[in-house]
Simulated scan of single mutants.
Amino acid sequence: MNGQTRKDLSAGVTVDIVLKADQKTGKLTSGVVKDILTKSPTHPHGIKVRLTDGQVGRVKAIHGK
């Protein structure tokens, strides 16, 4: 799953995100979803989430629970 569809995500799922500061390099950060911030059902650049450690970024890959 590529992280562009909101229904594929829920709190507690492990994901790879790109932080705003890492958008140019594409460096991925792994973590567990705490909140889903994007309200629309899909987003072409990935659904924006907040991880349990407070970092915010767009989902690039979903690993599951």
Rank of each mutant, 00 (worst) to 15 (best):
L28W: 11
G3A: 12
T5M: 13
L19N: 03
D35N: 11
V13K: 13
T25D: 09
Q23C: 02
A21Q: 05
H45M: 12
G26N: 09
V33M: 02
V33A: 01
G46N: 03
D53W: 09
Q23K: 10
G12K: 12
R58L: 03
H45E: 14
S10H: 15
L51M: 04
V18T: 03
K65C: 05
K24N: 06
K60Q: 13
G31Y: 05
Q4P: 09
D16A: 15
L28Y: 06
R58A: 06
V49I: 07
T38S: 12
V59A: 09
K65H: 12
G12V: 11
D53Q: 06
T14G: 07
R58H: 11
K7Q: 15
M1K: 10
S10F: 14
K39C: 00
L37Y: 01
G3M: 08
D16M: 11
H43L: 08
V15I: 13
I62F: 04
T5P: 08
S40D: 10
G57C: 01
G46S: 06
G46H: 01
M1W: 05
T5L: 14
D35L: 09
A61N: 11
L37S: 00
V33Q: 01
G54I: 09
G54R: 05
V33I: 15
T5E: 14
R6I: 11
I47E: 04
I36A: 01
V13T: 13
V32T: 12
T14I: 12
K65W: 08
S30C: 04
R6P: 12
V13C: 07
G46W: 02
T5H: 13
K48C: 10
R6H: 13
G57F: 01
G46V: 03
P41H: 03
Q55R: 15
T38Q: 02
K7F: 13
D16C: 07
K60N: 06
G46Q: 02
H43V: 03
V49K: 00
V18W: 00
S30G: 11
D22H: 04
G26F: 09
K60V: 09
K20S: 11
Q55L: 10
T5C: 10
G31F: 03
G31L: 02
P44T: 09
D35V: 03
S30A: 10
L28G: 00
A11L: 12
A11N: 15
S40G: 06
G57N: 00
G26Y: 11
V59S: 09
T5Q: 14
T42G: 05
V56G: 01
V18F: 01
L37R: 02
G46Y: 02
H63P: 06
I17N: 03
K65D: 14
T38M: 03
T5N: 14
I17H: 04
T29Q: 09
K27L: 05
D16I: 04
L37G: 00
R58I: 02
T42W: 07
P41A: 08
H63K: 13
K7S: 15
I62Y: 03
S30N: 10
S10R: 15
T29P: 00
D8T: 08
S30E: 07
G31K: 05
V15F: 08
P44Q: 11
R6F: 12
D16F: 13
T52K: 10
D16P: 05
T38K: 03
L28Q: 10
N2Q: 11
T38P: 01
G12A: 11
G64P: 06
P44W: 06
I62S: 10
S30K: 14
T25R: 12
H43E: 10
N2K: 14
P44F: 07
G54T: 07
T29A: 04
D53A: 08
